[in-house]
Design a protein around this nucleic acid. Structure first.
Lengths: 231, 231
DNA sequence: ACTAAATGTTACAGTTTTATAACAGTCAAT
DNA sequence: ATTGACTGTTATAAAACTGTAACATTTAGT
């Protein structure tokens, strides 16, 4: 799950610096040079957060937020204002118009990062797309506590086996090739031998063995693997 | 049940006067000379209400409240602003930022007392006793007295370990990343190495060791830590 | 039954993650 | 100034995890 941030800032140097820092922090970044451009970007793609310079040519910060909040699809996107020092007047205006937080220029990347994290957290209190536990017969995977249990009996899994089981339990009764599993469970950026999947399947089976659920992990010869309650 | 009030006011005379009046009214009083000091106080002890002068050297009222609201433990503490006459501008700002009420200087102690009572009533509708202690098996954490005991046996914790345990006991059976713990326990405005969390986890475990509750603090490899009665 | 391909299993070396201890700076109380 | 408690950082040790390759077994087709 990548988090996308829209940066609206007219100063090229600052904009580039921002995008660079944000990417380093693992965010995906869209950049706009003025309010008009920024609003255009929003028509195409909805970011998870907006970094908004307050002093903009054309549409200024206040106006930008107004228009943003006026659109029901965009109204909930949190906004962090970037203000120069001494603009505390505007600051209050901004917060009252609907900005969620602000950062004074100049700021350090860590500080900005902290603010971004805080705002995202505040705005996504539900987190983790709802479902807290996934069940399959008596097998229970709890995403919050990061635990797998059968009848309350705990099953120990390494990080990779946990992700693998998690994926399987979210997508039961369906066969996946080793390549697909690598993409979905490991991520598509790494290059790993396909046979490695076999090894982790083995480890998962072994961990599930005492509970008898190891046969839920099924081999589909010539294709890959499948997780299913039915034999 | 004593009610504690934090006074943040830079003018010594007014501050002392306030503390004196408050004590007369039966409140316990903590005093801070500026915003920085005030925030430090909050790390150690959570008051039931904050009296906040609006004109402060360093961190001003807006910033103070902003930081306050950013911390989940402190977010609900009501704030009464102390404003000089003619600062009606700031008044609006303050209320929009999240102050709960205001009192114009100069004010009379009875007036202030009335406001305090009103705000406390408004903000603690459930109250009367509220949860003062959190328990986990025989482990008892008293939020007011800032004490942790097992079977009446006292356990000594440093401030950070106390907050960490406090957070854990409020959120058991759930894995948190080091980053999340930093956000929730340390606050999202500081930038601290993630490894530092490990060290404090270690200190917490060590402190709990003699009681045998150290294994409640569990490592979730690849993720972070979890506090749970179940192994 | 024989063969080739696919999968199961195991051991291991390298890497990553976590635990622990030691250190230095801060702050308040004395 | 000095002490002592506390905090954050860092270095090193220990533990856990990972990917690979080598070998074993099963499977399907002949």
């Amino acid at each position: 799950m990548t988090t996308t941030i829209l940066v609206v800032e007219d100063d090229v140097a600052i904009r580039d610096m921002l995008c660079f820092s944000l990417k380093q922090m693992g965010y995906t970044c869209i950049a706009a040079g003025d309010g008009e451009q920024g609003l255009d970007c929003l028509k195409i793609q909805q970011p998870d957060l907006i970094l908004l310079d307050w002093m903009l040519p054309g549409i200024d910060g206040i106006e930008f937020i107004r228009r943003l909040r006026a659109n029901e699809f965009l109204a909930n996107i949190p906004v962090i204002m970037l203000t120069a020092k001494g603009e505390s007047e505007d600051l209050v205006k901004g917060l009252s118009v609907g900005a969620d937080d602000y950062v004074n220029k100049p700021f350090s990347p860590p500080e900005l990062g902290a603010r971004i994290k805080a705002v995202l957290r505040r705005c996504n209190p539900t987190e983790s797309d709802g479902k807290q536990t996934i069940e399959c017969d008596k097998l229970v995977l709890d995403t919050k506590s990061h635990r797998v249990t059968v009848d309350g009996e705990r099953i120990d899994l390494g990080p990779t086996e946990f992700r693998l089981l998690h994926f399987f339990m979210k997508n039961t009764d369906r066969a996946y090739s080793r390549g697909q599993l690598l993409d979905y469970v490991w991520g598509d950026t790494v290059y790993i031998e396909e046979r490695t999947v076999d090894v982790h399947i083995r480890r998962l089976r072994k961990a599930l063995e005492p509970s008898g659920y190891d046969n839920f992990v099924q081999t589909v010869r010539g294709v890959g693997y499948r997780f299913s309650a039915e034999m």
